[in-house]
Design a protein around this nucleic acid. Structure first.
Lengths: 185, 185, 185, 185
DNA sequence: CATGAATGAGGCTTCATTCAT
DNA sequence: GATGAATGAAGCCTCATTCAT
């Protein structure tokens, strides 16, 4: 039955995230990855034949999770709060997104399609937010004097507000309030 | 004496920004820079003896400008709006900040001190915002039920909201409103 | 598994010696080394990640050999002659030592420790010679009116006396005599 | 009458020696030299149009001094001692000679002729020593059972015996004795 | 003469990727 | 499948040297 696999995609993704979060994309090489996983560098090529393919696949994977969460939230009575809640759990996704400019998007067809999928997913996120906001507008909860794009941008941006670890609940609370009612009394 | 300079620091900084914004930090080499400026690669080393030194010097330069602007604004009657106004002009500074994880901060002593200065300036920005918010709280304009840090984070984060070029005025208007009064009616 | 090595440390050391002896340290680059060995430049980096690491490792290796030889000689009835004999075989070691001022000793920790080891080995050589001379003094063979350090220096210095190839035996004979009885009748 | 010279050959030579002795030939650049002298790098090219020309000129200059000293000594009743005496004063010349393998001897015609002159001077040194030794043989002072070349080599080699500063007199004494009568009682 | 500026040549390194076992 | 070894491409950096003022 051949040799048993020593690693799988999940481990690759975990190690990838760990390294990128720890060392930034600059510190993310197959060299480092191999060390992290305790396998030979060349072994990774049995799974992903190109660095960019791995990274983009990983990001697709991440984004899918987020989008999935968003789907389960949109039915909530307080959907904006639900979004903030998700952000608190996927804060690092933004760090991950920053690696995008460093990726050669033309590298291979697979990379291209991954990148396209990523953009698709990002679009989904945005449009889910838009939808939520529009619905809320219809319900008379959200203001109508501002473009939905700008508001969507704001909702996406708040993920950048630093969270102190073990203060997530408070972060959600405060950020939600700020989003809802703004800075002013 | 000696011959006339063909480039100066200003041009270096401009080219640096241009390249980083266009290609990301990954595409920023002295090779690219030299091509952009039409000089030999080694010429650049007469100005900055290390890639990191140039980039960090540039970022310090940028941040200084922003902080300087902030100083001239804080006396305004509507200081939060002033901040948003600055953000609209320095939107790219955030893109620039994203290169930080890619910089080898130990590269040289000069780099180290530049990086320290950068953090100092970022701190200044934050503390200026804090101060503004606290003062506004005292004047009874800004709410008091939320930690100043979180609010500062929000103010800094809005710079990430995408601007459509030639829509800056509107962006400022809308973002300011959102900041002030939130999403909700 | 993996493919068979095309070079090993021994070949690297041999090539290193050959090049340094032929071209001096100035002519010793990984480029030259790679050409000499018929491999790609980068291949060498799989063995030694820095020029200085290779050179210093090589010198440690050389010195160890010499010290080892010295140990097997000290029991001889005519130990000074034994030393001269060793010198005749390791004449080039002195040429090698001349590269030391050209080595960046701080390059890496490994380099540092290699350099330290080198000095340790040189110290060993010196102290072995000292010991021999002192013992010979006790046996009443070696004069006592001169500091042992100076005599040790003399013994080490004679390695510089040029040898004509295929005249080694004669060189040993004559140098030994000179060491023992001096120039004068 | 034109601008006054700010440096001259003497200063160049002094600075050259200082740097080479301090940092080794590796640390000897026109950059360092210019700093040492407080002039622009390019200024040096008004005096020597090539690094090698400067270095070789300097070495010729040094060797000439030594040879000159040797001439004034050879008339002494104890000529070997006289040589040792000179060595004590020019100990560093040997360090200087070690840079030779690093010099591109073909660099320019001037370099070539300098190098030739250097070899000539080294030959002079050797032949002066030979002559002295031969004369001493004739006077029945120096042994005849050993080739003059080997003995010359010994005399030249002793310059390598380390001198402790402010112990020069003693060094001369001891080395002379060793040369004359050897290590053995 | 002196100099500041520019440059080219050459060496150093690091990885992603490919190969052969 | 896994691996150790080899490699090429690409970027970094340092000087000697040349140029123009």
């Amino acid at each position: 039955m051949g040799r048993a696999k020593t690693i799988d995609e999940t481990q690759l993704f975990q190690a990838t995230e760990k390294i990128i979060l720890r060392d930034g994309y600059a510190g993310f090489h197959f060299k480092a990855l191999a060390e992290e996983l305790g396998v030979a560098r060349s072994t990774i090529y049995n799974y992903f034949s190109k660095k960019e393919e791995l990274v983009t696949a990983f990001m697709v994977h991440l984004l899918k999770q987020v989008v999935h969460h968003m789907d389960n939230v949109s039915e909530n009575e307080e959907p904006v709060r639900g979004l903030v809640d998700i952000w608190s759990k996927y804060a690092n996704i933004h760090q991950m997104m920053h690696v995008m400019p460093y990726i050669d998007r033309e590298a291979t067809p697979l990379v291209q399609s991954n990148v396209q999928e990523m953009f698709g997913l990002l679009g989904s996120m945005r449009s889910r937010i838009s939808t939520i906001l529009t619905k809320e507008q219809e319900r008379g909860r959200v203001r109508k004097d501002i473009q939905v794009e700008t508001m969507t941008g704001l909702v996406m941006a708040v993920v950048q507000i630093p969270i102190q670890s073990d203060q997530e609940a408070r972060w959600v609370e405060e950020v939600y309030k700020l989003l809802k009612d703004g800075l002013y009394d």
